[in-house]
Amino acid sequence: MTPRDASDDPHSRWSDLDRPPLNAAALRRGLVREGGLWTGLDVVARTGSTNSDLVALAAAGKAAEGAVLVAEEQSAGRGRLDRRWTAPARSGLFFSVLLAPSGIPVARWGWLPLLTGVAVATGLARAAGVDTALKWPNDLLVTVGGEERKAGGILAERAGEDGVVVGVGINVTLRAAELPVPQAGSLALAGAVSTDRDPLLRAVLRSLEEWYGRWRAADGDPADSGLHEVYTAGCATLGRSVRAELPGGRSLVGEAVAVDGDGRLVIATEKGVQEPVGAGDVVHLRPM
Rank of each mutant, 00 (worst) to 15 (best):
V266F: 03
R216I: 02
A258L: 08
E275A: 12
A127M: 03
E210D: 14
W38S: 10
A156T: 10
E255G: 03
W215I: 12
L57S: 11
L17Q: 12
A121F: 01
G278M: 09
F95E: 08
A279Y: 10
L81V: 15
L227K: 10
L41D: 04
E34T: 15
T143P: 01
V68R: 05
A151F: 10
G35Y: 10
A60W: 07
S52Q: 15
A89Y: 02
D82H: 14
S75I: 08
L246C: 03
A128Q: 12
E275T: 15
A184P: 09
A128R: 10
S102P: 00
G61I: 04
L17M: 12
N171E: 03
H284F: 00
P3N: 06
S186R: 05
T143R: 13
E157C: 05
M1W: 13
N51V: 08
L99G: 02
G152P: 00
R197A: 02
W136D: 01
S186A: 05
P3L: 13
A121R: 13
A192M: 06
P101F: 02
P222G: 06
E73F: 09
R78I: 00
E229G: 02
N23E: 15
D16N: 12
A128Y: 11
D262W: 11
G254R: 00
P276E: 02
A119H: 04
M288P: 14
D219S: 15
G254E: 00
S52V: 15
P180N: 09
A89L: 01
L37T: 13
G239A: 01
Q183E: 15
R83A: 13
S12E: 07
V97K: 05
W38I: 13
G163I: 03
R126T: 11
G191S: 07
G169H: 03
T237K: 00
A151N: 06
A87C: 07
M1S: 14
A63I: 04
A188T: 04
A59E: 15
L155K: 11
A76D: 07
E72W: 00
T50K: 01
S225Y: 05
A127G: 03
D8H: 12
K271M: 09
A190V: 12
P182N: 06
L140H: 01
P180C: 13
L31P: 05
G36M: 09
Q74R: 08
V259L: 11
G129Q: 07
K62Y: 04
A64R: 15
G169L: 01
S251C: 14
W211L: 09
P10W: 09
E275Y: 06
G61L: 03
S7T: 12
D42R: 14
P21Y: 11
L54K: 10
E270M: 03
A127C: 06
A125V: 09
V253Y: 00
G117R: 06
G226E: 03
